[in-house]
């Protein structure tokens, strides 16, 4: 099964939730379970679970479950990113790319920017 290598960047203070890392590389299988489970067993190639192409909505849940170090409620709300967090896909607003339905491609650059610190 092919793997996707994604560059994920954080800005605007959201990096505080990810061990203060501004940039990370995420390796994801191109096909992920349709039930959005993110554990190692579910991501194994020989798992019996039904598969779908990995999309942005899955990446958000993957980041929450595997890389977020504190206060998940500040990153995810109702299965998507919390209002006030902007997402850019290859320097383009994710709204133009179908938001969570955007199918991830290898070498994609995904940026999460928090706007919750105003002023």
């Amino acid at each position: 099964m092919s793997q996707l290598s994604l560059k994920v960047e954080f800005g605007g203070g959201i990096e505080l939730l990810f061990s203060k890392k501004h940039t990370i590389t995420v390796e994801l299988p191109a096909l992920v379970p349709t039930d959005d489970s993110t554990d190692d067993q579910s991501l194994m190639e020989d798992t019996a679970k039904e598969k779908k192409p990995a999309n942005l909505a899955y990446l958000v849940l993957y980041l929450r479950d595997r890389l977020l170090t504190e206060r998940a409620e500040l990153f995810v709300e109702n299965g998507t990113v919390r209002p006030g967090i902007l997402v850019l896909v290859n320097d383009t607003d994710w709204q133009l790319e179908g938001e969570g339905d955007y199918e991830l491609k290898d070498k994609d650059n995904i940026v999460f920017i928090s706007t919750l610190h105003g002023g």
Partner: peptide, 21 residues
């Protein structure tokens, strides 16, 4: 809007100061 400000900062290479939310 705050969205435009955040996008301006990102594209201009500006990084707001980290603060607890």
């Amino acid at each position: 809007g705050v969205k435009e400000c955040a996008i301006w900062n990102w594209w201009a290479g500006l990084h707001p100061v980290d603060r607890p939310w």
